[in-house]
């Protein structure tokens, strides 16, 4: 087991949940609210020095009772050590977790992808939009277990919606310029951006 786990326990106490080992990798569960502190601590403490974010993703289990997990793969390049940090969320409830973009820029697109595929909201992310599916995609979040493999709509409807999408849809200059100051936006505009209302089809479900 990775010694960082004990160091984490000593520093953060109850915010650190169970830790286990699977196929030689150490996994440690962290309380949702402490995530950002834990991550910053892991990166900035010289003995830990997890300076490299390998991956951000999520796992939803087939067993509907099990929580959905957000998985962070961390690595210390100097120490050649790996640590996997997980946060548990209730798949039926509020899928919100703090964004780690302030700690690692590399999390930017990875979190956007997790948002796109699982519907997890990363609070404090500078520009949380869909990344792989298009903005007006209305069928849901594809990697959730309740999402059917072939999508929710009939093929004809999918083709119709796809063809009706504007191939040159993009953010207007104003929206692009404010993307940097996203946090200062009024709440309703944030909401509008998040829903990707721009360019929405009038008759889409």
């Amino acid at each position: 087991m990775n010694p960082s786990v004990d160091a984490l326990r000593a520093t953060f106490g109850t915010a650190i949940g169970r830790a286990l080992e699977s196929c030689g990798d150490t996994i440690v569960y962290v309380a949702r609210d402490a995530l950002l502190d834990v991550m910053a601590w892991l990166r900035d403490t010289p003995e830990q020095a997890y300076d490299y974010l390998v991956d951000v993703t999520a796992v939803e289990y087939r067993d509907r009772e099990r929580p959905l997990e957000v998985v962070y793969g961390l690595r210390s390049l100097a120490r050649r050590a790996d640590l996997r940090v997980k946060v548990e969320l209730d798949p039926q409830g509020d899928l919100t977790v703090n964004s780690v973009v302030p700690v690692w820029r590399g999390a930017d697109w990875l979190e956007r992808e997790a948002y796109d595929m699982f519907g997890i909201t990363f609070q404090g992310h500078p520009d949380l939009r869909r990344i792989l599916m298009w903005e007006t995609y209305t069928e849901g979040f594809p990697l959730r277990k309740d999402f059917p493999l072939r999508g929710r709509f009939s093929r004809a409807e999918q083709v119709r919606q796809a063809l009706a999408a504007h191939p040159e849809a993009h953010y207007s200059m104003e929206e692009l310029s404010i993307a940097e100051a996203y946090e200062e936006l009024p709440a309703d505009m944030k909401e509008r951006l998040r829903r990707g209302e721009h360019g929405k089809l009038p008759d889409s479900e």
């Binding site: 993703t57 796992v59 793969g73």
Partner: peptide, 23 residues
Amino acid sequence: GTYLVSDGTAKPVRWRIRPPSFI
């Protein structure tokens, strides 16, 4: 990176590719 999560069946619960060129 290939990240596989199994729940004991013959099909993975999650197959995640850590895509280098995406990052």
